[in-house]
Simulated scan of single mutants.
Amino acid sequence: MTKREEALRALESRDWSGAEVDDTKRQISIVYSVRVDQELSEWIAAESDRRGVSPSLVIRDALTEAKATEASDQTVTLKLSDLHRAVNRLVQPIGYRTA
């Protein structure tokens, strides 16, 4: 009798009537392939070396942080003139800023 035949015979003799289904939720992992420029690639490699983890974990952590940031983002209402003043302060050269 071959090993395959032995395995099939063992399966036939099992009584599955008392079996229980394991319905615990498991996270499914999906792989994405992305292209990054050299500068970003070097940062990912350096960060993974610094932390002693894989580049995949560095990317996953960055995406998780971005998702959390988006989820906590809030919409605010402000006057258009206040928005213009804030933007103008950002774009003025440092030497020309006024109080």
Rank of each mutant, 00 (worst) to 15 (best):
A46H: 10
R14D: 04
L57N: 09
A19Q: 09
V87M: 03
L80S: 08
E12M: 09
S41Y: 13
Q74S: 03
P55W: 00
S56Y: 04
D61Q: 14
V87K: 00
R26W: 07
L78C: 10
L80C: 05
S72W: 00
T77P: 02
L11C: 10
T24L: 07
E12G: 14
P93T: 09
L83Y: 15
A10K: 09
Y32D: 01
L40M: 09
I44D: 05
I44S: 03
P93S: 15
R60V: 03
Y32T: 04
E42Q: 11
D23A: 15
L63V: 10
I59M: 07
D22M: 08
V91L: 05
L83R: 15
D23F: 10
N88I: 02
E42R: 05
V58Q: 13
A62T: 03
I94M: 06
L80N: 12
N88S: 06
I94H: 04
Q74C: 03
S13P: 04
T69L: 08
D22T: 02
S56G: 13
S72E: 15
V58C: 09
R9A: 14
K67Q: 11
A68R: 13
V36Y: 03
R60D: 13
T75F: 06
E42H: 01
S56L: 01
L57T: 08
V91K: 01
L40P: 02
T69H: 07
L40W: 06
S48T: 01
L8W: 10
T69V: 06
A19S: 09
D49W: 08
L11F: 13
S56M: 06
P93K: 14
V91N: 02
Q92T: 14
I30Y: 05
N88A: 13
D73L: 12
R51Y: 05
S17T: 15
K67H: 12
A66D: 10
S48H: 01
S41R: 06
Q27M: 07
E20T: 08
T24F: 03
S41F: 08
D49G: 11
G52R: 05
Q38M: 11
D82S: 12
T24R: 15
P93H: 12
D73N: 14
R51I: 01
S29C: 07
Q38W: 04
D61R: 07
S13H: 11
S29V: 15
L57C: 01
D22L: 04
Q38D: 14
T77H: 09
G18H: 13
V34R: 02
E20M: 05
Q74P: 00
